[in-house]
């Protein structure tokens, strides 16, 4: 089954929360997908078909001209059609007890995917596994159809960047926290102080806080600095673990705006783990509900056949 959005010309960029013509392929069960080569949809479309185009067929949907004007970085449709990140048949078993299985995600450029599910179901583990901090029990992750083993894991993580739920600040100034990743060999950009200050102000913090000791900031502020730190190295895919969990509603809105801007203007993609389904609805092009992938406790213990 292939579902395509039926919508007219795309709304102007600033008013729309999501990119309208993003090709988003989401097949949550790799095995079933292979049996149905025509394509299948298992992702939950909570946006009413307005922004989600789900299609596992080979032919990509061409972008309307306005889309291209909006994102001049995109060179040609062929490059665009390749998924940025492809997760195939991933199974997760931290500490040898399987928790999740058969997770397949195809993330296109400029799209936001929400991962929702009950707490403790393995959302964070999934994100860590995609980032390669933990090994998968089965399946693989490919970036631009290349294995991270070939690209090199630091180079991969520099492009597919995880932001932890608990913001981790070095015991130093905010500026040092922001500059530090630029010392990694895999990050070959120069640090752009102007851009950092701009984004800092967009996130509701002031330039003055650059000189402040990062650990004296509130958790909400630290969470924003952590997000900014990841954005500054210009990754292609942001893996965000509850990016607004420590924030009040106002800051939450700001973060969501910044994320949309990053996705739409800079063509980044993001996988956002959230327990807040309303946020997932508001922010993301598609949602992956982990519930069907959760291996029940009885199964994990071998009481029931998986």
């Amino acid at each position: 089954m292939a579902v395509q959005s039926r919508h007219g010309p795309p709304p102007p960029p600033e008013s729309s929360p999501c990119p309208v013509s993003a090709v988003f392929t989401i097949a949550t069960s790799g095995r079933r997908r292979r049996r149905e080569p025509s394509g299948s949809l298992q992702g939950v479309d909570r946006t009413g078909g307005r922004v989600l185009t789900t299609d596992t067929g080979a032919r990509p949907i061409p972008h309307p001209p306005s889309w291209r004007r909006m994102r001049p970085m995109i060179a040609d449709d062929r490059e665009e059609a390749l998924p940025v990140l492809k997760v195939s048949d991933l199974a997760i078993a931290p500490g040898d007890a399987p928790v999740l299985k058969d997770i397949s995600i195809t993330l296109q450029r400029g799209t936001l995917l929400a991962i929702v599910g009950p707490s403790g179901c393995g959302k964070t583990s999934l994100l860590r596994t995609i980032a390669g901090l933990d090994d998968a029990a089965a399946g693989e992750v490919r970036l631009h159809d290349r294995s991270p083993d070939d690209i090199g894991w630091p180079a991969y993580r520099r492009v597919v960047t995880l932001v932890q739920q608990q913001p981790v600040m070095l015991d130093d100034t905010v500026l040092e926290n922001l500059v530090r990743p630029f010392r990694h060999r895999s990050v070959s950009l120069p640090f752009d102080r102007r851009l950092a200050i701009d984004l800092l102000e967009t996130l509701g913090l002031t330039e003055r806080c650059l000189g402040q000791r990062a650990r004296t900031l509130s958790v909400g502020e630290q969470q924003r600095v952590a997000l900014l730190r990841a954005i500054l190295i210009e990754p292609e895919v942001l893996l965000l673990d509850e990016p607004t969990s420590a924030l009040d509603e106002e800051s939450q809105v700001i973060i969501e705006q910044v994320l949309r801007l990053q996705v739409r203007r800079h063509g980044r993609s993001a996988i956002v783990v959230t327990h807040d389904r309303r946020q997932a609805d508001r922010l993301c092009d598609a949602q992956l509900d982990l519930q069907p992938h959760v291996i029940q406790y009885a199964q994990r213990r071998g009481v029931v056949d998986a």
Partner: peptide
């Protein structure tokens, strides 16, 4: 651990 993994997440090699 979080700090070490934060560096890794931001593209640090294991040595870094």
């Amino acid at each position: 651990r979080d700090e070490v993994e934060m560096h890794l997440s931001l593209g640090a090699s294991r040595w870094e």
